[in-house]
Amino acid sequence: MRVHGPASSGWLLVALCAATGAYCLLRMRSGVEEQRRAAGGEALMGFGMAAMAVPAAAFTPPSWAWPVYAAVFGAAGLHALWAARASARHLHHLVGAGAMVHMAVTAAASPGHGHGGSGVPLLTGALLLYFTGYVLVTGVRLVPAATAAVTGGPAGWGDRPELARACRLSMGMAMVAMLLTM
């Protein structure tokens, strides 16, 4: 799954995902255990998305990289499935990991060709619908959180809910962009 089209948009996607992953690493220093756990998975997702979004003109990964991506995100999906027993919030992480596995498997099966012009397959279309809805809902929820945070007093970098939502929103938008390139 290489980002096709102008290289500048691919590099912007790489920068967005890498910056989001870096902030999620900072969030792992939170005093709240649930925040730390969520931030670790989100950091993995951000850096994985950044690596997968590198424009094909700049770097073509070796053929073994795609199965490695699929295995890493498959393991992350299993972890999210296990965590979903305690909280349904982890189901989103499961869908995100599944989307990453889907993109890696698609790229491995057809490197550099996406879906070969066959239209939008059912799974890709379903993932696009899910992440588009997620972006819209998260964006709406972000506005009240940002307003409340301004009046709520200081919080540590890892415990700012509006920043965590903004990171999730940016990763959701990046996922939509990546799925559109398939």
Rank of each mutant, 00 (worst) to 15 (best):
L26R: 00
L26E: 00
L26S: 02
M28N: 06
M28Q: 11
R29Q: 14
R29P: 01
S30C: 13
S30F: 10
S30R: 02
G31P: 03
G31N: 09
V32F: 06
V32G: 05
V32M: 09
V32H: 09
E33A: 15
Q35P: 06
Q35E: 15
Q35M: 10
R36L: 03
R36D: 01
R36G: 02
R37C: 06
A38T: 14
A39L: 00
G40R: 13
G41Y: 07
E42H: 15
A43R: 05
A43H: 03
A43L: 03
L44K: 05
M45P: 02
G46D: 00
G46L: 01
F47G: 00
F47R: 01
G48L: 08
G48Y: 03
G48M: 07
G48E: 04
M49H: 03
A50M: 05
A50W: 01
A50N: 00
A51F: 04
A51Y: 06
A51K: 00
M52I: 10
M52Y: 08
M52K: 06
M52E: 07
M52V: 10
M52G: 07
A53P: 02
A53R: 02
A56K: 09
A56D: 14
A57K: 11
A57Q: 11
A58M: 03
A58W: 11
A58N: 05
A58F: 05
F59I: 08
F59R: 08
F59H: 14
F59P: 03
F59L: 15
T60G: 13
T60Q: 14
P62Q: 10
S63T: 14
S63D: 13
S63M: 14
W64N: 03
A65E: 06
W66T: 05
P67K: 09
P67S: 08
P67N: 06
Y69R: 06
Y69T: 13
A70F: 07
A70Q: 04
A70C: 10
A70W: 03
A70V: 12
V72I: 15
F73Q: 01
F73L: 06
G74D: 03
A75M: 12
A75S: 11
A75F: 08
A75N: 03
A76I: 09
A76M: 14
G77C: 10
G77I: 08
H79P: 07
A80Q: 02
A80Y: 04
A80F: 04
L81Q: 03
L81S: 06
W82P: 01
A83L: 15
A83W: 07
A83F: 09
A84L: 12
A84Y: 06
R85D: 09
S87F: 09
S87V: 07
S87R: 11
A88V: 02
A88W: 00
A88C: 01
A88P: 02
R89N: 14
H90K: 11
H90F: 15
L91P: 05
L91G: 10
H92N: 13
H92C: 02
H92S: 11
H92M: 11
H92D: 10
H93F: 12
H93Y: 12
H93I: 04
L94N: 05
L94M: 12
L94D: 01
V95M: 11
G96D: 01
G96Q: 12
G96H: 09
G96T: 14
G96K: 09
A97G: 15
A97H: 09
A97F: 12
G98R: 03
G98L: 08
A99V: 13
M100P: 00
M100K: 02
M100G: 00
V101C: 12
V101M: 09
